[in-house]
Structure formats: structure tokens, C-alpha cells
């Protein structure tokens, strides 16, 4: 099956029905492995003790928060440029998931910050830009809920998503200059990761598990959205239908 075939919502539904069980199984296995590695293989930090385990949720959630926005950006391009019939469904389905990952990364970050920095929240560049990302997600969801017609809503949201995609890096760099406390990047660096393999491997497995979780949730949410639109079409058709009884009465 070519990728283009998935553009057809019915084919997509069939594809999801076939793939979803395997994807769910794979996600469960990845999480089991990731959690095992994180709790029993990765050593406690000599300074932070067991609190360092928060990292195995915090970092993948933060990655996924951005990955999800990237997905929405691609989908928005699909909506505006290629008018792909499924792309605004993809964008709409991704937004709440992205907001949830963003929220999880903020929540775990602040729980981690309390023992590390002595406060739940600081107006650090990294934290602030993620908070702005969360507000962006909420705004997109709100815009979607305000416009009743899904096609019109999809276009409006796609424009806002793309503007946000341009603006987020700017926000990121500007708040970097504004205030910084968060530790610098330590996994993806030109000179190789700076953290020990016993921590790196569990982290990568957890990241894989989170990505799989996102894929599963995204497919399910897209399926729900397609069904929701079908229900809407059926309802509109049902409303337009002239009831047989009424015409019979009028004919009397």
C-alpha cells in the first residue's frame, strides 16, 4: 500500500484497524523495558539520589511535546499547501496529545525542581518557553472549539500553527537571553553525549516508548475525529430528511 492511499479516510481506518493492535503491544513492551531499565539498571545519581528517575519521564515528555508540534506543523502544511483530506484531522488529533505531553513535562519538571532548586517554578528560559508552548497548544485547541465547521476551523488553526512554528524558536532564543538556569543539552551534542551509557540507554528506550505511545494515541484520536465528522455528516443529512409522516399528513 502506497502512502498516498492513506489519504483516503476509509483506507486509513482500515489501516488503523490492522496496525493498532501491534502498535499497542509494541508500546507496552517498550514501556516495560524502559521502566525496568530506568528503575533497576540505571544507577541513582550520587547527588540527586532517586529523584533523578524523574528524568526518565521528564525528558521524553519534553521531546514529545516538541515532536508533536512538529507533527502539527507538517500537517498544517498539508492542509494549506496540498489540501490533504486527512491532514487537518491529524493536526486536530495531535493538539490535545501535545498539550498533555507538555503538561507532563512541566509537572515532572517542577516536581524535580523542588528538591533541586528549592522551588517548584523559576522563570528560566527553558521552562518559560515550554510554558509558552503549552499556551500555544491551548490556544489552538480553543480556536478549534470556537469554529463549528471543521474545514474552516482546520484552515484557521493551520495558519496559527505555522505562525507558531516560526515564532517558537524566536521565543526560545529570546528567553534564553532573558534568563537561564536550566542545564544545557547533554544528549544531542556534536561531540557525543555527555551522560553515562547506563543512564543514556534507559533514557533512549523510554523516549522510544513515549514516541510509540504518541503514535498509538494519535492514530486512535484520528480515528475518533474521522468518526466524529462522519456522525456530523449523518446528522446533517438526518436533519435535512423530510419525515415520511409529515409529508403524509400534509397530503391529507
Amino acid at each position: 500500500m502506497a502512502l498516498i492511499d492513506l489519504a483516503n479516510p476509509s483506507r486509513f481506518m482500515a489501516f488503523v484497524a490492522r496496525v493498532l493492535p501491534f502498535a499497542v503491544a509494541l508500546t507496552v513492551v517498550a514501556f516495560a523495558a524502559g521502566l525496568y531499565l530506568a528503575f533497576f539498571v540505571a544507577p541513582d545519581d550520587y547527588q540527586q539520589g532517586a529523584t533523578v528517575k524523574i528524568m526518565f519521564v521528564h525528558v521524553p515528555a519534553a521531546w514529545l511535546a516538541m515532536f508533536c508540534y512538529a507533527t502539527m506543523t507538517m500537517a498544517s502544511l498539508g492542509t494549506l499547501v496540498w489540501r490533504h483530506p486527512l491532514s487537518d484531522v491529524a493536526a486536530k488529533a495531535a493538539a490535545p496529545i501535545g498539550a498533555a505531553f507538555t503538561f507532563i513535562s512541566l509537572l515532572t519538571g517542577s516536581l524535580w525542581g523542588k528538591p533541586m532548586w528549592g522551588t517548584y517554578w523559576v522563570w528560566d528560559a527553558r521552562l518559560t518557553s515550554v510554558l509558552v508552548l503549552l499556551i500555544m497548544y491551548f490556544g489552538l485547541i480553543a480556536l478549534w472549539r470556537t469554529i463549528e465547521d471543521p474545514i474552516r476551523a482546520g484552515k484557521a488553526v493551520a495558519i496559527l500553527t505555522l505562525v507558531g512554528a516560526v515564532n517558537l524558536p524566536i521565543i526560545k532564543f529570546s528567553v534564553d537571553w532573558w534568563n537561564t538556569l536550566h542545564q544545557p543539552a547533554s544528549v544531542i551534542r556534536l561531540d557525543g553525549p555527555t551522560i553515562h551509557p547506563t543512564i543514556l540507554w534507559p533514557l533512549l528506550v523510554m523516549a522510544l516508548a513515549f514516541t510509540l505511545l504518541f503514535l498509538v494515541l494519535h492514530m486512535m484520536a484520528m480515528r475518533n475525529e474521522i468518526l466524529r465528522r462522519r456522525v456530523r455528516t449523518l446528522q446533517m443529512r438526518a436533519a435535512a430528511r423530510q419525515p415520511a409522516t409529515a409529508t403524509a399528513q400534509a397530503a391529507e
Binding site: Q235, M236, A238, A239, A240, Q242, P243, T245, Q249, A250
Partner: peptide
């Protein structure tokens, strides 16, 4: 609703009605 011929649409959102409905 039966009398005005909208009983079939009772549970649908009013947004889906035509101007005459």
C-alpha cells in the same frame, strides 16, 4: 415537534437545520 414536522431532528443540534426548519 411532531406537529411541525421536526420530530426526527429532536436530538440534533439546531445548527444543522435549514432556514425553513
Amino acid at each position: 415537534l411532531e406537529f411541525i414536522g421536526l420530530a426526527h431532528a429532536a436530538t440534533l443540534p439546531a445548527a444543522y437545520l435549514s432556514a425553513g426548519q
